[in-house]
Structure formats: structure tokens, C-alpha cells
């Protein structure tokens, strides 16, 4: 088969033998693709320091005759390195969480142009530092769930279908199993795990549907961030069926930072 040229973002890289790397890429047209970069670890001309996590690349791949065999990375050139992500462990942890989620959830060789744009957007914003990593993570998780067909229902009660904004209470509850919010009248004790203020629900709805480029201008209260984070970081692994290791790392790091140990 002739070589294929595409843009790609590095989701994962694993050492293979003494010199090779197996790199998992997210591409718009082919979705998740695993490629072998031969002699990449000692390469000074073909892949010098560019097959790094989260790097955005222009790549040329070639596939053998075997349909399920690994594609071979022939060429790669860097289009965005995202220098500032690697200069912060917190940013690296967030970017790792997003990449690992995609790596765990995506089927290989299925076109994912929207997901590619979403990941490229959040990585660029994370690198630029205009938007808080926590807000970007809420945006990413909400939109990923929407694209995966598990969009949390933040509009109406998942049980009685009422509009909770018409009720007196200032908060609602959220259920992983029901896949969205539950009004106070329907929420029994076992459904009261995640409490969300109505203000938080409104901002989460905006993050899900608003223009992502405007997210940097919005002010999110610490309460909204904490509530949204707690709910979505339970919701996403529940529906994807796997808990990313980087999520545990991220949560541990945030606890260390909160205790001032970092």
C-alpha cells in the first residue's frame, strides 16, 4: 500500500526492544493508529526528539499487506511541541488523563476528526495557559462524553423529566447510573452522592455547548470546579468502563497540592 500522510497527536509511546518505539497516534482521518518507529531511540535525523507525548506532528505512515499489522512510521515533523505543558507536572497530569482516556476508549482505525480537533484545542489552551486546566478538563470530559454517546443529561431530571430550574431548591443531584441530574423530589438517599448547585449545572451546560474559545473569559467559582470535577471524574470512568491510571495520579497530585506538600 502507498504511504499515507496525515496530521497526528501522540497519545502514548512505549519502548519496544533496545531501539524501537511503538507510538499511538490520534489522527483525524484514521482515528487511533499504533505505529512502530524503527530505531527511533537512537535516531538523530529521522525522529530527533519529536516523538514525545502530546506533540502534534505531520507524519507519513506505511502499512504492510497484513491488515492487522502495525503501521510503520516513515517520517515525522513537529508542528506543535507544547513546551509549557512539560514544564508543569499538573499540566502534564491533565494532558496525560485526556490522552489516556482517548487511548483506552477509542477503537483503532475509525475516523475521529471532531475528537482530534477537541484534543488539539485543549492541548493548545493548556500550553498557552489562558484557561485553567480544571476548566479545560471539564470541557474535554463533557464533550468527549457527548461524542461517545454518553452525554450527561444536565437539562432535566433523569427520572421524572421535570425541569429542576422550576423548583425551589438551589441544588440538584447527579447519578452515574441514570446518566444525568436528578431533581430533589426524585433523589432518594442512595442517589444523593453528587450534589451540584444549579449555578454549577448551568456552567457545565455552557461548557458542553458554548464556543470553547470563549471558555477562557468565563469565571468559574471554586465550588463549580470542585462539584463538576468530582462528578465528571466519576462519570467518565463509569461509562467508559475503565479508570485511567493518570486520573488516580492527577487526583493524588491535587490532594498533595491542597495539603501544601507539593
Amino acid at each position: 500500500m502507498p504511504p499515507e500522510a496525515t496530521t497526528a497527536i501522540v497519545l502514548r509511546r512505549v519502548e519496544y526492544g533496545d531501539y524501537d518505539l511503538i507510538v499511538t497516534l490520534l489522527t483525524p482521518d484514521q482515528g487511533k493508529v499504533s505505529v512502530i518507529a524503527k530505531s527511533a531511540k537512537k535516531s538523530t535525523k529521522r525522529f530527533p526528539g519529536i516523538l514525545e507525548l502530546f506533540a502534534q506532528l505531520d507524519v507519513v505512515l506505511s502499512r504492510g499487506r497484513r491488515k492487522n499489522g502495525l503501521a510503520v512510521l516513515q517520517e515525522a515533523s513537529l508542528t506543535a511541541a507544547y513546551f509549557h505543558i512539560r514544564e508543569s507536572i499538573l499540566k502534564t497530569a491533565y494532558a496525560s488523563y485526556w490522552s489516556e482516556m482517548l487511548n483506552l476508549w477509542l477503537e483503532a482505525d475509525q475516523p475521529q476528526p471532531e475528537l482530534y480537533d477537541l484534543l488539539a484545542f485543549v492541548l493548545a489552551e493548556l500550553d498557552a495557559g489562558h484557561t485553567s486546566p480544571a476548566v479545560l478538563s471539564l470541557l474535554f470530559q463533557l464533550r468527549l462524553m457527548g461524542m461517545a454517546g454518553f452525554r450527561p443529561d444536565l437539562e432535566q431530571c433523569s427520572l421524572c423529566r421535570c425541569d429542576p430550574s422550576c423548583q425551589m431548591e438551589s441544588h440538584v443531584y447527579a447519578s452515574l447510573r441514570k446518566g444525568g441530574i436528578i431533581c430533589c423530589e426524585c433523589a432518594h438517599d442512595h442517589l444523593k452522592t453528587w450534589r451540584l448547585s444549579k449555578g454549577s449545572v448551568k456552567q457545565l451546560r455552557w461548557l458542553e455547548r458554548g464556543d470553547p474559545a470563549r471558555a477562557r473569559r468565563l469565571k468559574f467559582s471554586p465550588q463549580t470546579l470542585a462539584e463538576g470535577q468530582a462528578f465528571l471524574e466519576a462519570f467518565v470512568p463509569y461509562h467508559l468502563g475503565r479508570e485511567p491510571r493518570s486520573l488516580r495520579f492527577l487526583q493524588h497530585l491535587r490532594r498533595l497540592m491542597a495539603s501544601g506538600q507539593r
Binding site: G49, E52, L53, F54, I85, R86, E87, S88, I89, K91, T92, Q261, R262
Partner: peptide
């Protein structure tokens, strides 16, 4: 190392 993990580890140690 100058990989993403090496750089972010250096940043973490600097903070500590």
C-alpha cells in the same frame, strides 16, 4: 531526561 516525563519531574522537584 528531556522527555515530557523527565521535564515534568524536574518541574515537580523544583516546586518541592
Amino acid at each position: 531526561s528531556t522527555s515530557v516525563e523527565g521535564e515534568s519531574t524536574a518541574a515537580y522537584i523544583r516546586e518541592r
